[in-house]
Design a protein around this nucleic acid. Structure first.
Length: 567
RNA sequence: CGGGGCGUAGCGCAGCCUGGUAGCGCACCUGCCUUGGGCGCAGGGGGUCGGGCGUUCAAAUCGCCCCGCCCCGACCA
């Protein structure tokens, strides 16, 4: 296509509101424009790239037997009420009323509608398994849209749903998706981690997230560069770096020390000149009206997921200051386990065997030295802490890293949640009723593009993987006023088109510098520069990512590009 | 929803404190010139100063209210 006829509004300056590279470059390179908070217009280049991504997704979904549907984004409230998500989703669900006052919503995923179709039509075990998918716009009323296309209120998602006769069947559908997702993200040129995710509230089923490491990401992933172990924070296991070596070993008795105004771990460690790992951190949580005192090493954080696994019923919440005053007789910041009665004391496992530590005295502005777990107080020792950077990998003994990451895909064994609540059943071989078991599997289309930009950009612009770039190549004649160059460029343009190469012909009457800058910005993987050497039949092939410049015969250029495209 | 910041030409910003002619760079249009990394010269167009109400002889500027956008947190996953 001819650049002079296209709408590619590139910006020389960085838009003030864009923080991350992907956001800035999507705007600067003329891919997108914002319409409202978390709502974007996808312009020509973005749409081309997104269509290429969707085509890859489509091919791989079809390859595992997926059948493409297209379901309504506008849903009646009834199906969401049946599944219970009408209430569960709260403000995240966009709701509206029609002219007759009927409740409707905009779909954030399509478990309900897919299950609605299945229950109306699937009758026999002979029809299973089924694997249905769509590529469709989703709506979520995010409390805080941010980071360009990363967290938005309207986005494109590939979502698929599997219906199987039994768990073994679900295992097969799940595994098919896992492999398809790997092929999709490989083909899109991403570097990603497939991490075990925590199983959620739906009966201990399996779940895996596909994450691209990036500072723009909002999720944290624990990763071992040594063995490749990867897990999300809720699920991650590790061996804590041992801090017990610094403990005085002799038998001592607790000793009260005045620590005026020193409340946080940082303040107390500075005041007493000890490392945070010598302190016991005390956290008071209330679950189902029952208080818990949770003890952690000073440099560790509580994993709420792990705590939730041991607590009694009800959602945990931090105790109110008045409650703490009532139960402990002291302010938060001076709390500790010594002498505490009438409440379960849960201590993280790494505190077991430690000696002569420091913790709050339950008297304002006082701490206790020489507190030994198991001697000066009793507790239940459990795994309660979040993995921290530098912990030892439980698999290989390497040092764990914690990286920020963007979630680009998620596969999930749903179980019977929707088949049960919405009454999906088929007849089995001997006429018995069987409730199909479901899986659901999502991919964020824009997030693939965004993650790719985060991964591949430099000071000049983006550098997209060839498979998802809007074009294969930009043709840049240096001087269109030169007849030979103009004609040579036209000829090469025609030949590229004939060969099926996605070619962008920069036929604008601009100075070469402008064209080079724009070509770099929009991230097309190759550029052919036609200059003075065209007289000798030579043009330059420039690799956007490596900056390697190669002189090639113009006669061979189109064939060469075709070959590069096929790679 | 709590905290912070911002809103002046398409983009980036100054002007506001101390009220009185709305400005700069880039982009855009015309002409000339130039043609290997956002070139040069000359001329030109473009503004409800986010909106409303108020104070004042006079409001981009002062006051009150509202709206929008960004960041942090909460929430969500």
């Amino acid at each position: 296509m001819r650049w002079s006829k296209l709408f590619i509004p590139t910006l020389r300056e960085v838009p003030a509101d864009a923080e991350f590279a992907s956001h800035q470059l999507l705007l600067r390179a003329g891919y997108v424009r914002q319409l409202a908070a978390g709502i974007y217009n996808y312009l020509f280049l973005a749409q081309r790239s997104l269509l290429k991504i969707q085509q890859i997704v489509r091919q791989e979904m079809d390859a595992i037997g997926g059948q493409e549907f297209y379901l309504p984004g506008l849903n009646p409230a009834e199906v969401w009420q049946e599944s219970g998500r009408w209430d569960l989703m709260g403000d995240n669900l966009f709701r509206l009323k029609d002219r007759f006052g009927r409740d409707l919503c905009l779909g954030m995923t399509h478990e309900e509608v897919m299950t609605f179709i299945a229950r109306g039509e699937l009758r026999s075990y002979k029809q299973l398994p089924q694997l249905w998918y769509q590529i469709q716009t989703k709506f979520r009323d995010e409390p805080r849209p941010k980071s360009g296309l990363l967290r938005v209120r309207q986005f494109i998602m590939k979502d698929s749903y599997s219906f199987d006769l039994d768990e073994a069947g679900l295992d097969v559908s799940y595994e098919k998706h896992r492999q398809a997702y790997c092929r999709i993200f490989d083909r899109c040129g991403l570097r990603y981690l497939a991490v075990e995710a925590h199983s959620g509230a739906m009966g201990g089923s399996q779940s895996m997230e596909f994450m691209v490491a990036s500072n723009a990401g909002e999720d944290l992933v624990v990763h071992c560069p040594g063995c490749g172990y990867a897990a999300n924070m809720e699920k991650a296991k590790s061996v804590a770096a041992d801090a017990g070596a610094g403990d005085p070993q002799e038998k001592r008795t607790p000793e009260k020390v005045h620590t005026p105004g020193q409340k946080t771990i940082a303040e107390v460690t500075a005041f007493l000149s000890v490392p945070p790992a010598r302190l016991i951190k005390s956290v008071v949580l209330v679950a189902g009206e029952t208080p818990f005192l949770v003890l952690l090493r000073g440099d560790h954080a509580l994993s709420e997921t792990k705590f939730a696994a041991v607590r009694g019923a009800g959602e945990p919440r931090p105790a109110h200051p008045e409650e703490i005053r009532q139960w402990f007789g002291a302010e938060p910041g001076s709390l500790g386990p010594v002498g505490v009665k009438g409440m379960r004391i849960l201590a993280d496992r790494v505190l077991e065997g430690r000696r002569n530590m420091i913790t709050g005295a339950n008297v304002d502005d006082y701490h206790l030295l020489n507190v030994t777990p198991g001697v000066d107080f009793e507790a239940e020792f459990l795994d309660l802490r979040q993995v921290t950077e530098g912990d030892t990998c439980a698999e290989c003994g390497g040092r764990l890293q914690i990286v920020k990451a963007v979630e680009v895909g998620h596969i999930f064994k749903l179980g019977y949640r929707y088949s049960r609540s919405m009454g999906l059943k088929v007849l089995g071989e001997s006429g018995e009723e069987i409730m199909p078991i479901m899986g659901s599997y999502g991919i964020g289309i824009e997030r693939i593009l965004t993650a790719a930009i985060e991964l591949f950009h430099d000071k000049d612009g983006m550098s997209l993987p060839p498979s998802i770039a809007p074009f294969d190549v930009v043709l840049t004649p240096v001087n269109l006023g030169d007849k030979a160059q103009r004609e040579g460029a036209e000829a090469l343009y025609a030949e590229c088109k004939a060969q099926g190469v996605d070619v962008l012909f920069d036929d604008r009457d601009e100075r070469p510098g402008v064209k080079f800058k724009d070509a770099d910005l929009i991230g097309v993987p190759y550029r052919i520069t036609l200059g003075k050497k065209l007289a000798q039949g030579v043009v330059e092939l420039v690799n956007r990512r490596t900056h390697v410049v190669e002189e090639i015969r113009v006669a061979e250029a189109a064939a060469r590009l075709k070959a590069l495209r096929a790679q």
